[in-house]
């Protein structure tokens, strides 16, 4: 468990072997969004066998265009690494931004890239808050 301090963006991460969960609190904006990308990039490098990356978004406040750009970049990187990205517990505001910009589908569509496409795995993030996708051994995917 690590906490990144200074900015108004705070990240709390919880790792298991094949799942990383990052709780995002504060503003994902022009000044801070980079931190999240760095954190995700680090996690991808640390866990080569990662199957699922959960960004827990309930604590997200402002997301500006730079923040969205960073989310798109994170999606691009996770897809390239064959990791499923989940934007969990999205606040209504984030949902509005994603649907306005036509990116909601992009973020929630099943993973198409990469060698592994274990059917039935949780590509669709939960639409209601509270419960997160269970992260257990059954989600574990074989290394390519």
């Amino acid at each position: 468990m690590t906490t990144k301090p200074p900015s108004s963006l705070r990240l709390t991460t919880v790792d298991t072997e094949d799942t990383v969960r990052i709780e995002v609190h504060g503003d994902l904006d022009y000044d801070n969004a980079d931190h999240l990308l760095l954190a995700v990039t680090d996690k991808l490098a640390e866990h080569p066998r990662l199957g699922d990356l959960h960004l827990h978004c309930a604590g997200l406040e402002l997301v500006d265009s730079m923040g969205l750009s960073i989310l798109l970049m994170i999606h691009r990187r996770t897809s390239a690494a064959g990791v499923r990205l989940h934007l969990d517990d999205r606040p209504a505001r984030l949902d509005r931004l994603l649907s306005l910009t036509g990116t909601l589908e992009h973020f929630t569509a099943p993973l198409t890239e990469g060698a592994e496409g274990s059917p039935g795995s949780s590509a669709e993030p939960p639409q209601t808050g509270g419960e997160t996708t269970p992260a257990g051994p059954r989600d574990r995917t074989a290394p390519p």
């Binding site: 750009s69 798109l72 649907s99 306005l100 910009t101 036509g102 990116t103 992009h106």
Partner: peptide, 14 residues
Amino acid sequence: TSGTLVGAIPETRA
């Protein structure tokens, strides 16, 4: 009208 933003993802729809 609605559609996808441009410049970040390969496929667009509008």
